[in-house]
Simulated assay, not measured.
Amino acid sequence: MTYATAADGTRIAYQYRGEGPVLVLLAGQSNSHRWWDAVRADFHPARGTLTLDYRGTGDSDKPDTPHSTALFARDVVAVLDELGIDRADVYGTSMGGRVAQQLAARFPERVGALVLGCTSPGGPHGVESSNDVRRSLVQSRPGAARQALLELMYTPGWLAGHPGPHHTLGDPGMPAHSRRHHLAASRHHDAWDLLPAISAPTLVVHGTDDLLNPTANAPLLADRIPDARLHLIPGARHAYFEEFRSQAGRVVLDFLNRSAAEQ
């Protein structure tokens, strides 16, 4: 296992695969690098992929201290520093997209091109999921909350043909305190005032049927970030990058390649 050490001494596990220009892949809330297992190889013909286990997940340390998306962004920088990578493209989905916003705004020299998937600016400007969605995720009946999350991630037709395992439902090895800290980090994210400072070429991607992180957040981000592009995937839910992997991967790689050619 390979680690970088954050400024506060926390060890951050990271994983590098493939060859070529580096693409950092940032997972969703309460998930380790395994969030990307189903699709990361799709980028390898053209890119090397770098993932990490957020503090509290996977093989990283799990301190019982407050977390934030800005802190997670600093952890990403620690990993880049450990590997001697001055600049990389960044693709963040869900909470990973919130971390990517912080990274691109606060460390612009470290980010080449930026892709924000199924994410939100947070704060009072972000569009929250409905009360019905939130209630569905805290049901007490055994298995009900997990099934609700599956159906927010994927369409019924796709689930019927893909019984799992599903690595987008959270890291099962997380301690309870880490889950609380991740939830707080995501809930307290507010990058609205930072977004106009993002200078990296930016693509915003979202599924049109995403209720977990409502699709209305996508145009908010695209309008707030200078010259950002917006791509909506019809019929896709929160895990668009997996269920619609052929379309989503192509859109992202085309954008990254165009951005590299223009720089």
Rank of each mutant, 00 (worst) to 15 (best):
V127H: 11
A70K: 06
I12E: 07
G18R: 02
Q102N: 12
L25C: 04
S186D: 09
G96R: 01
Y3W: 11
P165R: 06
A41K: 10
L169C: 10
A46Y: 13
A200F: 02
T119R: 04
L80Q: 04
P234E: 08
A185W: 01
V39R: 04
D86H: 13
S129I: 04
T2E: 14
K62N: 10
A27K: 00
S130R: 10
D223S: 12
S130M: 09
V76E: 00
L211F: 15
L137Y: 04
T57L: 07
L50N: 00
Y240D: 14
H238A: 09
R87K: 13
S120A: 08
Q15K: 12
L50Y: 01
T119P: 05
H33E: 13
S120H: 03
T93R: 02
S136L: 05
T93W: 07
A88Y: 03
H162Y: 09
V252P: 04
T93K: 02
S30E: 06
A41F: 11
K62Y: 05
G48M: 06
L71V: 13
A6R: 05
E242Q: 14
L103N: 03
L230M: 02
L25W: 02
G9Q: 04
L212H: 01
G122H: 05
S178E: 03
D254Q: 14
G157I: 04
G96W: 00
C118T: 12
D53E: 09
L194T: 02
R11Y: 03
A78T: 07
E262Y: 11
L23S: 11
T51K: 03
R47Y: 15
L137Q: 04
Y54C: 01
T49D: 03
G28C: 05
H188K: 09
G84R: 08
R17V: 15
E82R: 15
G170M: 07
Q139W: 02
A104R: 00
S140G: 12
V77M: 11
G164C: 12
R187Y: 09
L137C: 05
S60Y: 04
L256Q: 01
D75W: 02
D86S: 13
S120E: 01
A4W: 05
